[in-house]
């Protein structure tokens, strides 16, 4: 808007600017605001150096293109609103892709087969963890979104505890206690309540995944153990096969 056209300024603009002033003053004196030396930091991120900072890079490079992409912004949405699912997604990337890949690269010839089995196990475990968490946590995440979108309905009467003058979406965004306790509420179902059943389900589902997806079965990837693995017995069998009596023997229908 060109400020030169101020003569024709509607009242709306004035009230809008007044609103900014009003909001800012309210926040300054209201709850959740920690103001020191005319600077504002509610304490979520790193410390302020006070130095003049250079212009931010918003050029057309890979990082900035990623930041502007829809998929990245959707991903950030998942990280904030579906934190448990996001943590299993991280596990899927780190423990299901990066770790098995590194282990396979680092594996020697003698333990290659074991590494392949371990990698398949890790990938299965990470995939199951992600799928199970996504399914189990979906209703919890939707319920949390309801709290976030309509806090008056669910959190009425908690003004003092959450350090806000009144319960409202915007007011709660600035409340540090609300932010903290919400993250606990979001993550507790997975950490304390569903953690063990989820782990048991994952353990139960790993063998069929290994069998039908990776065609691997527990124990079969290893060299035979027990009496069959006895080198003396193997040598005896080899000797027996090479024996002239056995060579002379011709089986089958004549």
């Amino acid at each position: 808007m060109k400020i030169d056209s101020i003569k024709n300024y509607p009242a709306g603009y004035v009230s809008q600017t007044n609103k900014l002033k009003h909001d800012y003053e309210h926040e300054k004196h209201g709850a959740g605001m920690h103001r020191e030396n005319e600077s504002v930091n509610r304490g979520y991120y790193g410390s302020f150096t006070g130095k003049e900072k250079a212009a931010v890079n918003v050029g057309n490079n890979f990082v900035n293109k990623t930041f502007r992409s829809n998929w990245f912004q959707k991903l950030l949405h998942v990280f904030e609103e579906k934190t448990v699912v996001a943590s299993t997604l991280v596990a899927l990337i780190v423990a299901g892709v990066a770790r098995p890949a590194t282990n396979l690269v680092m594996a020697g010839k003698e333990d290659r087969e074991d590494s392949i089995y371990a990698a398949s196990h890790a990938i299965s475990s990470a995939i199951i963890g992600f799928i199970v968490s996504s399914i189990v946590m979906a209703p919890f995440d939707k319920a949390f979104r309801k709290i976030k979108e309509d806090p008056k309905k669910y959190l009425q009467g908690l003004e003092e505890l959450l350090d806000v003058k009144e319960i409202g979406k915007r007011k709660l965004e600035k409340s540090v206690p609300y932010k903290k306790i919400s993250k606990v509420a979001q993550m507790i179902p997975d950490t304390l309540i569903l953690g063990v059943p989820k782990a048991m389900l994952t353990i139960a589902l790993i063998p069929p995944i290994l069998k039908y997806v990776f065609h691997l079965e527990k124990g079969k990837h290893k060299a035979p153990q027990g009496p069959d693995a006895n080198p003396d017995k193997q040598k005896y069998v080899e000797k027996l096969i090479k024996a002239p009596t056995l060579k002379a023997f011709k089986g089958g229908d004549k």
Binding site: V14, K21, Y24, R35, E38, S39, V40, N41, Y44
Partner: peptide, 21 residues
Amino acid sequence: LEKVEAAAYKNVRDFNLDVLK
């Protein structure tokens, strides 16, 4: 209109909460 008081924001989250909204 009354003028707003000077305040520097330490992080972008607070700047968004109070100014950009």
